[in-house]
Simulated assay, not measured.
Amino acid sequence: MNYLHYAEKYMMDTYKYLPVVFTHAKGCKLYDISDKEYLDFTSGIGVMALGHGNKKWTKAVKDQLDKLVHTSNIVLNVPILELAKKLTKVSNMSKVFFCNSGTEANECAIKLARKYSFEKYGKGRNTIITLNRSFHGRTMASLEATGEEELHKYFYPFPEGFKHVDINPTALEKAVDSNVCAIMIEAVQGEGGVNPLSREFVNKVFEIAEKNDILVICDEVQCGLGRTGKLYGFNNYGVQPDIISVAKALGGGLPMGATLCNEKLKNAFKYGDHGSTFGGNPVCAAGAVEILNQITDENFLEKVSKKGIFIKNFFKNKPSKNIREVRGIGLMVGVEINGKASEIQKEVLKKGLLVLTAGTDNVVRILPPLIITKKELEKGLNIIYEAIDNM
């Protein structure tokens, strides 16, 4: 049966689908309709942190399905309360709002920052500074927050109140004025090309924020929850933001996002200021609790760091004229090449490997499940290297 024809006939043309249809998965392996095996270096764009078919996560979700699937946000359920307690504590934050995605988590962060500033300073102090090459989502405010002009065309007018700046301290300082209420950053820009921010720049963000009573929002949707070998990407810089947005890995494959705030913002939202019908779903929450149980183990995160070093050393020991740079932290790595990453993506797919692209189609993005073995890593890296070197 030609399932790919179904996509062309019935689905909007929002994605460039690779010529493969998957039916099942286990660990770091995916299997297509002909049962061909593929090594997964994407983890569903950073979602499947524990790999596919994690037994403890699956049991937590199945058990909750038999108990309670959905209520509403006018009542409470046990899994969401357990998750709220655990997530705030491990994040060193005070309160949390649950939603369904990273985009929604960032929308909440934007509203929360503006509400706090309005209550403290009144009207007009509502501008949020974001970075060029950033990515914060697809809804109208989060898309305008995204510092990639190519994604903005066709969709004007956008909500007001955003400034995009280059990633350097001077540009940041020039952008700050009395209307700015927050600065929003990703510790590692994923979609923009896997660009880790420099320690100098991150320090400047927090220095400016403290001096001007400006909030710092860390978008940890892709680089958070163990991806960099720390719980959050910003933990690599020794800082603590006012607001954190998370999603992707939190749900383990189910739609789950969250926005966390610190002590000074904990009472900024009042009744009716924000909401989400499916936010706090008990099934998603039960799975998220198990995700946190596993990734917050110190040995787990240490192993992720070592695997990241393994990737860097692999390419260091096998230079190629077609590789410009290898960058990233932990298991969030970008290989910038002299050519089109999308062509490499298609080539390695033929060899049974699934990878991502980033930047202006010149970065092969490596985001495997955090449980991947070094043997699996080496197999996939050799396939990538061969494809790039033979371009």
Results as ranks from 00 to 15, higher is better:
K374L: 11
L76P: 01
K303G: 05
E347S: 14
K16N: 15
G280I: 08
Q64W: 07
N299H: 08
S198Y: 04
K55V: 11
E149I: 09
M1R: 09
A341V: 08
I183S: 03
A249G: 03
E160R: 13
C181A: 08
A286S: 15
K270D: 02
V304W: 07
L81T: 08
L231E: 08
I344M: 06
G224M: 06
K266C: 14
N293R: 15
K59S: 14
S198P: 00
G226V: 12
G53Q: 11
T14A: 12
V176D: 03
G122M: 01
V165W: 01
S142Y: 01
F158K: 10
A285F: 04
L377R: 08
K270W: 05
I372Y: 02
A249H: 03
K264S: 12
N132A: 03
N317R: 15
E191H: 14
V348F: 00
K266L: 04
A247Q: 09
A341Y: 02
L4E: 11
A171I: 04
L254G: 06
L381F: 10
G224V: 06
F162V: 15
N338L: 13
S320L: 11
E263H: 08
A268L: 02
M12T: 14
E150R: 11
K379N: 13
Y121H: 15
I291N: 07
V335P: 01
I323M: 06
R365C: 11
H24N: 12
L39C: 10
T103D: 14
N236G: 03
N106A: 04
E376N: 13
V61N: 03
T88Y: 03
V96I: 10
L353W: 00
G233N: 00
K153P: 01
N382I: 03
R227T: 12
L65R: 14
M12A: 15
F155G: 05
Q345V: 11
V202P: 05
E302S: 13
N73I: 02
K16P: 09
E107V: 10
V348K: 00
T14K: 08
A113P: 01
N235R: 07
N195P: 01
A358T: 01
N2F: 01
G257I: 04
K62I: 09
K211V: 04
I128N: 03
K36L: 08
K36F: 04
A84E: 10
S342F: 10
I110H: 06
E107D: 15
R133Y: 12
F310T: 07
F41Q: 07
E378P: 03
F310H: 15
E173F: 02
G308D: 10
E200H: 08
L349Q: 10
